[in-house]
Amino acid sequence: MAEKIKPPRMRLPRKVKQDEVFKVKVRFDHPSFTGLGRADVDETKFNRAVPSRFIRNMLVYYGDDLVSRFRMSSGIADDPLFTFKLKAVKQAPIKVVFVDNEGERWESSKDLKIKT
C-alpha cells in the first residue's frame, strides 16, 4: 500500500505589522515522478517508463480571497519547500490548498496575527 501523504506544513511570522510584507514558507512532502526513463544509459531520448505523479496546483487563500496560485508540472522536485510573500492587509487565516495530478487534495491553515 502506498505511503499516506501528510498535510502540508506552513510557517508564518508570529506577529506582523499592518501592511507589512512577510514571507510564507510551505513544505509539502509529496512525491514527484516525471515518469520518464531511458531504456539504457547510452540512449539520448526519454521514454514514458512509469505513470507520473506530481503536485498540480497550490492555491493560497487569505481570508476568503484566492491571492496566489502556483500551477506546476512534474518538473518540480520531491517534497518541495515553497516560499512566497504576502502583504498583511487584514487579520485573517491563511490557507494553502494542494491538488495533485490524481485529484487528491490537502490543505493547511494558520491565523495571521497583526500587531495593534
Binding site: 510584507v21 518540480i76 519547500l81 512566497f84 504576502l86 502583504k87
Partner: peptide, 10 residues
C-alpha cells in the same frame, strides 16, 4: 496582495 514578487522552490 502579495506585496512583493518573490517565489522560491526546487
Amino acid at each position: 496582495v502579495n506585496g512583493e514578487v518573490y517565489v522560491g522552490t526546487q
